[in-house]
Amino acid sequence: MKSDLLDRLLADRDAKRAVVLVTDLDNGGGELHYPGEGGDGALAEAVAAAARADKSRIIEHEGRRLFLNVNNPPLRMVICGAVHIAQPLSRMATLAGYDVTVVDPRAAFASAERFPGLALSHEWPDEAMEALGPDARTAVVTLTHDPKLDDPALLVTLRSPAFYIGSLGSTRTHAKRKERLSAEGIDEANFARIHGPIGLDIGAKSPAEIAVSIMGEITETLRRKLD
């Protein structure tokens, strides 16, 4: 690989831009391709598909053997509600490679003491979500139990391609949530994107255990259901 190509690749990764390094395995020649930004038909399509699946792979293209090395920006998680469960969940998500932001307008909850080293937002959840712009590599979790805070976050998130949306609350709470969001124009199919009650059913009791069940459900969605 040429030094300047390596430098450009690192700059793209720093800028959190999705980039695919295409290497000709016969002569070592390399090029950077940007998924979804045009270019030669079949190759551009293969690049976009590899980036979507987050899977590096070898392809045959015009008689050449090319290796597509996918460099996607980090996964993101937005947690609405700086409650107790958010503490272990944010740490687990960080370990699993997510860039985590905790949103809670109650500054006493979303404090640096409770969430050391994490990005915190004290904006109202809808404004925070608008600013964060969840994409297809973002998981959004609402944990406040309070419709005043959770609903605005959900209304913005449901208009985004976030790959996972989960909301804390019992089946009954979730049914009431459905009525409220439906009155705001969220249709059945869109509402069904919300995992509620949140998390895998593993009998979790403590905040850390509930965080495990949420992290498990997010991982399952990412690795099994998006393929």
Binding site: L6, R13, F67
Partner: peptide
């Protein structure tokens, strides 16, 4: 963790190069 280690491999390669060292990359294809 493994993921973070992966993320620093290319940075280290570039840093070694800047120091004037001979550098190679090996990639599981």
């Amino acid at each position: 963790d493994a993921l973070k280690d992966d993320e620093t491999v290319l940075e280290q390669a570039a840093a070694w190069k800047t120091e004037g060292k001979g550098v190679a990359l090996a990639t599981v294809v």
